[in-house]
Each structure stands twice: as structure tokens, then as C-alpha cells.
Amino acid sequence: MTATATTTKHDFEPKLVAFVCTWCTYAGADLAGTSRMQYPSNVRVVKFPCTGRIDPVFILRAFQKGADGVLVSGCHPGDCHYMAGNFHARRRFAAFRQLLDFVGVDLKRLQFSWVSAAEGGKWVEVVTELTERVREMGPMREFIDLDASEHWSAELADAELKAAYHSL
């Protein structure tokens, strides 16, 4: 792995949030670091005991708070520290993906992966790939625009509000 990718300047640096389990993927990311492997610094890692603890609402919240992409990663099937947490997570996220797709969220911004404590290289690969893909897609506007829009008399935007709150 060369360091050239990280020195390239880009117009848009996507913000990625990675929800990872502490036993496998966090350790895998740690291994990538201690092995001096380079991966995009766009990713912010949030550690959980298990993918089974990662509530779909966290993903939603991440997008709402300005994430351009989200990664959820944990132990390979069969390797869960708590026996079955990742099996439950697998079903939950399979369902959640379909729901997000149905409300119109582009699933290319959401990646799931199994990364074990020994797979520092895979962590780098997954993060790099998601970063580049999201970079190409540009900023995630949907939820940000939603947060800026007001509801009033069934209209999404209202001139009155815009005028009165111009100073805010």
C-alpha cells in the first residue's frame, strides 16, 4: 500500500461514520494502524460491544448529523464474541436497508462488512472503497436539506419564516 492516495487533494472530503464492534473490526482497524497501513482519514470510528448493539437509528442519526456515508462492520458469522449478535444484526440491517431504499436513501452510501481482528488489510480496503465511492457521489444533501426545511401549513418552505428568521 502506497501513501500517494492520502496526499492527493480533493474538492470534497466526505465524512464517513463507521459503527464497529469492539472485538473484531475495531481490533482490525487497530491492526491496520499499528501495521502503518494507510487509509483515508475521512472515517470516524464509533465503537460498540457488538454489531447487535448497533441500532438502525444510529445510522439515521449519523446521516441527519451530516455523514455522507456510513459503514457498519463487525465479526464474521460464527465469530461473534456473544455467539449470535452479528446474526441478529445481519437480519436487522438487511431489513433496514430495504426500508431506507424504500424511502429513497441511496444505498451506495451505506456499507456493511465483516472485518476480523486479523484483517487490517480488509479494513483499509473497505474504508478506501467507501470513501472513494461517496466522494464520487458528492455530499449527502437529503437529510441536511430536510433539517433546514420548515413545516408550515403543509408547505415545505414558507416565505414568512425565511424572512422572519433571516437573522438566525
Binding site: A159, A164, S167
Partner: peptide, 21 residues
Amino acid sequence: LSFEKRDGRTTVSDPDLDRLP
């Protein structure tokens, strides 16, 4: 009202109700 924290200071702004149409 809205609030913003910047450089250790918090500014609070009120909507300008005189501008209500």
C-alpha cells in the same frame, strides 16, 4: 431562538418578529 458556540463564546439570537409579514 437559536444559539451558536464559537471560539468559546455562545451567541443567542432571537427571530426578528418585526419582519413577520
